[in-house]
């Protein structure tokens, strides 16, 4: 009943016969990154919009933005994943719902996963964007108005360029979160890195080797992202501004 370690397992062929187990894991990593990046684009765009409208003078727009953030922050990611995957297509017209469900794999699970992660993370990005804008001195907006800029112009040319720079560090951790959170997509059938490790375990029975490899890959990706973002932060840093201390827990 000893555990039989076999580190050579990574170079063995999988039952599919298409490559080694290491190859399976790397394909998994590719899907992790693809899911995370695609979702990140949605999260940034949507999060910026929601974050901005929460700071506008319009009361109802701010309420709408707050409502969005509360809705997406207070439902577990896994439940949201199930809602996108199982429930959402049922509320569409039948032909459309069927078309979504019958997309060839992996798209039928990849698309809901990206939408889910994107909208979920957008709520968190929105929170950072709001905090970033509010951290700016009020005089900046007034200066914009004094210069004759319209409200959208003030945001575009005055507030957002600085706000985004100072919230880079918290955005980095949100990006790291989205990479980790993409593992939840395995529950709806995306074969990302964790799922690939699980599949490797099922076929090779080498549980701990599979999970060790996945862990190492996650750590390496993590470190890589941290270094890349640090470099970016240095390049775009505005002297005299530091990031606002928005405390949001998360994983």
């Amino acid at each position: 009943m000893n555990y039989h370690w076999n580190w050579k397992i990574f170079w063995q062929l999988t039952p599919e016969g298409t490559g080694t187990y290491l190859h399976t894991l790397l394909v998994g990593l590719m899907w992790t990154l693809a899911t995370a990046l695609a979702a990140w684009i949605i999260a940034l765009v949507l999060g910026a919009i929601v974050g901005v409208i929460r700071t506008t003078p319009s009361k109802w727009a701010a309420r709408l933005g707050n409502g969005y953030v509360e809705l997406f922050r207070n439902i577990p990611l896994l439940v949201q994943m199930f809602l996108w995957y199982f429930v959402f297509p049922e509320f569409l017209p039948k032909a459309m719902g069927d078309a979504i469900k019958q997309m060839p794999p992996p798209w039928a699970s990849f698309v809901p996963a990206v939408l889910c992660l994107g909208t979920f993370t957008a709520a968190r990005v929105a929170e950072q964007v709001r905090a970033g804008i509010q951290a700016l001195p009020r005089g900046q907006q007034m200066a914009g108005t004094a210069l004759g800029l319209t409200l959208p112009q003030t945001y575009r040319y005055v507030l957002l360029p600085v706000a985004f720079r100072i919230i880079l560090p918290p955005l980095t951790s949100e990006f790291l979160n989205i990479i980790k959170n993409s593992s939840v997509a395995l529950t709806i059938g995306v074969i990302e890195l964790t799922a690939a490790a699980r599949a490797m375990q099922e076929f090779s029975f080498q549980v701990f080797e599979a999970f060790t490899a996945a862990t190492i890959i996650y750590v390496v990706v993590n470190v890589g992202v941290v270094f890349a973002m640090r470099w970016l932060e240095k390049r775009v840093a505005v002297p005299g501004f530091i990031g606002p201390a928005v405390q949001g827990g998360g994983h």
Partner: peptide
């Protein structure tokens, strides 16, 4: 740092299989 850089799902699998050992 290690715990914070791996997904919870993976940690759940790890512990379920490893804790008895």
């Amino acid at each position: 740092n290690l715990m914070r850089s791996v997904p919870l799902v993976l940690v759940i699998f790890w512990f379920y299989f490893l804790v008895p050992y």
